[in-house]
Simulated assay, not measured.
Amino acid sequence: MAHFSLAFELQRDCIELFDWPLCKVLLMNDRQFPWFILVPKIADVTEFVDLTEQEQQTYWQESILLSHKIKAQFMPDKLNIAALGNMVPQLHIHHIARYKTDLAWPAPVWGKCPAVAYSSDEIELIRLKMA
């Protein structure tokens, strides 16, 4: 059986916040957008349909939980949720808090602005807020 490891791009661009039963919860290291990513801790999974039915249910439950936490803590105008995988084939779902005042609104956030990294204090505050 293959061993799970986080895709290089996700390791490079994200901060690992914590682990839930199925997924790693990541924070994109860009303070311009509250941007979280859920990655199931299962090796060689690229599509949602590659998960078992139970894993699919757990993935959706964790996605819904993360969505509620983002809405409660960040109060966005819109919550963007997407699983594209064109650049990073490892299965992952983006959860991005969007505001009508953010730098990319109303366009997608990808590639709009250079990332601005979080400070260690900001990361810890988010970790506490989202726990």
Rank of each mutant, 00 (worst) to 15 (best):
S5A: 08
L103F: 04
D19N: 10
K100W: 03
H92Q: 11
L51E: 06
W110M: 02
Q56M: 13
A131H: 07
L66G: 03
H68K: 13
K69Y: 04
K41M: 14
P21V: 04
S119A: 00
L17Y: 02
K24P: 01
C113Y: 02
A97C: 09
V45A: 07
L22T: 03
R12S: 08
Q57A: 15
Q90L: 15
L125G: 00
L125Q: 12
W60Q: 09
N86C: 12
L51A: 15
R127T: 06
Q56Y: 03
A2E: 05
Q32I: 05
D13Q: 06
P106F: 13
T52N: 08
L27T: 00
P106C: 10
F18L: 12
Q57H: 09
Y99G: 05
H95Q: 05
Y99P: 05
W60G: 08
L38M: 10
A83C: 14
L51T: 10
K112H: 11
V49R: 11
T46H: 15
I37A: 06
W105C: 05
D102N: 09
S63L: 12
L65C: 06
F18C: 04
K112Y: 11
Y59W: 09
D19A: 09
F74A: 09
D13K: 06
L22D: 09
I37N: 01
M1V: 07
W105I: 07
A104Q: 08
E55K: 04
P40F: 12
L66A: 10
S5Q: 12
S119T: 14
P108T: 02
F18M: 07
H92K: 05
D50L: 05
K112I: 03
R12F: 01
N80Y: 14
A115M: 05
Q57E: 13
A131D: 13
A104G: 06
K78C: 08
P76N: 13
F4V: 04
I96Y: 14
K78L: 08
A117N: 02
F8V: 10
W105P: 03
L125W: 02
F36V: 07
K69I: 14
